[in-house]
Design a binder for these strands. Structure first.
Lengths: 219, 219
DNA sequence: CCATAATATGACCACCTGGTCATATTAAAA
DNA sequence: TTTTAATATGACCAGGTGGTCATATTATGG
């Protein structure tokens, strides 16, 4: 338990651009190879520092990884908090749409960070994996739940539905959409490469979630 | 290109129970640690054979992995083919429900195989990863599409919906459901551990997909 | 019983990993 | 300039990997 989970002071004393180069190289490597396969050797050689140096900045591989991951989480939290605030008063499905668009924006800005999330999702050996994932899920579900409840109060959402199930479907669809956006080969049919079509696709999906698939619209 | 993608004859000459022990140990290891991290040393020591022996059975690690993976795919194909045939003539949403139940059954029977699928999903370094995933996706989408089209012909499904989007949502929800079933910690709220509740949960989800979330059911 | 083919074995190889540490270099303080 | 503290360096370590191969063991059939 000696190891710190934050960088050492030495790291923060570095010139900011050097800090950034180190972090960028690490993010790149973790996103490309996952936690276990990521190589400290590769990182230091990419950023052109000696191997020993990175151990002046971080206690070990785990500490470097966790620092990056927590940074990413905090970016996402801020983004969603922002969307929620800005869209206050708007229709539930509009808010869902805007949240999804924010997700797309995040991936555009930080594709490697999103990749790291995807990797940790199914790499059993990432450190603190379960804790990290649960933190994300919990936040995501709380976020959607608050939107949903507001929607129910306004009468936009049926009141008899089980919020757990509704959130399950929303979460699944949103998550998958972003996954496909980041890794298009996952679903060649839903072609999200061309920017213009995306908003229409989102509209279509939200509409389906709204009205359902069935042709007879009764109970 | 010397390497074969199938076991060597020697493997098939083995007593069947030995074949099975080898495969089971390999499945176990790949499911626990993914492709790259899986250790041939661990496999041979678990099945109590010498390291050299496994290279009498398979050309290399990749060949062993692919053999297992293809076996798994073929099991899934058979299961879905069976469900589709057995449920012919039934309502679209009932068929979706039964397909999902078949998925649950598969995970119960072959939990490690399903884990391997989950791992390959986001491990960039699995061999032939993209090919394997595309094969799965294609099959899954074709399967759902054929159900959907039959449903549209019967008038159970609105005819104006974009099949690509509908399948996207269905696929996302089904896939996620199974993921949570296999890895409950992914969604502690949707608690799928107790067997009795599952069918109700599936019913609830299918109903939501059917009628949508909105309270006013117009266009 | 012998000869031949099939199978089993584990020491060994080159390579890579995360991490260490004595030493060299640079910066700051006196 | 001299002293002291901070930082940079890369050879080195123990431990792991996938894969090989000469040799030993077993099975087969004449």
């Amino acid at each position: 338990m000696d190891a710190e989970l934050t960088p050492r002071q030495t790291f923060f004393n570095l010139p900011p651009d050097k800090q950034q180069r180190v972090l960028e190289a690490a993010v790149q490597e973790f996103s490309e190879r996952g936690y276990q396969q990521a190589s400290i050797n590769t990182i230091v050689s990419r950023v052109n520092i000696a191997k020993g140096s990175i151990y002046q900045y971080f206690d070990n591989k785990k500490s470097l990884f966790l620092f990056i991951f927590h940074q990413a989480i905090s970016i996402v939290r801020q983004m969603l908090k922002h969307v929620k605030k800005e869209s206050q008063g708007e229709d539930f499905f509009t808010r869902v749409k805007k949240s999804l668009l924010a997700g797309v924006e995040f991936i555009d800005k930080h594709p490697a960070l999103y990749r790291i999330y995807l990797r940790i999702l199914f790499e059993r050996d990432s450190p603190l994996r379960e804790d990290l994932l649960q933190a994300i899920r919990l936040f995501s579900r709380e976020y959607l739940l608050s939107l949903l409840e507001e929607g129910q109060e306004r009468g936009e959402i049926r009141k008899d539905i089980d919020p757990t199930l509704a959130i399950f479907i929303l979460d699944a669809a949103l998550d998958r959409f972003l996954q496909i956006y980041a890794l298009p080969h996952l679903d060649p049919a839903l072609d999200l490469k061309k920017k213009e079509g995306i908003e229409e696709k989102i509209d279509g999906i939200v509409t389906l979630l709204r009205h359902g698939l069935a042709s007879v619209s009764g109970v």
